[in-house]
């Protein structure tokens, strides 16, 4: 199971890198959000994927490490905010420049 998740992380990173290298800002933003999904999955794998009991002190059977899930929750919120900001920024660039191609953003040098 871990192998499958790790492969998915690899594919997400590949697609994200491809999109970040594109000309249009919206594609870059989608690429960044794929990156953050890949990072979240990596956090999930870091605790080990296994079945077990809830992490309560009263149970003595093997339990699941709760920390990665707490970390992912935080990371999801952060990447959500960042993606929202990046989307608005791309939209504003489109409004100001009339284009969202990164090689057409000139002006403001002096």
């Amino acid at each position: 199971m871990e192998f499958v998740i790790i492969s998915v992380i690899g594919v997400l990173f590949g697609c994200g890198t491809y999109l970040i290298l594109q000309r249009h800002l919206l594609q870059v933003v989608v690429g960044l959000s794929l990156y953050s999904h890949a990072a979240n999955l990596a956090l999930l794998v870091s605790g080990g994927l296994k079945r077990g009991n809830p992490p309560l002190l009263t149970t003595d059977a093997p339990y699941v490490d709760p920390l990665p899930q707490a970390l992912i929750l935080t990371a999801i919120v952060i990447s959500f905010g960042m993606t929202a900001f990046a989307t608005v920024l791309a939209f504003r660039v489109r409004q100001v420049y009339g284009s969202d191609a990164v090689d057409e953003l000139a002006g403001g040098e002096e």
Partner: peptide
Amino acid sequence: PGQLRETVKYVVINLIASTFFLISLSVLYR
């Protein structure tokens, strides 16, 4: 206009660095 262009660069560079931060944190935790 100039501000927006530089902000775009700054945002993309920093978000990529942040992703690597998260990945290295997960490997370190593992």
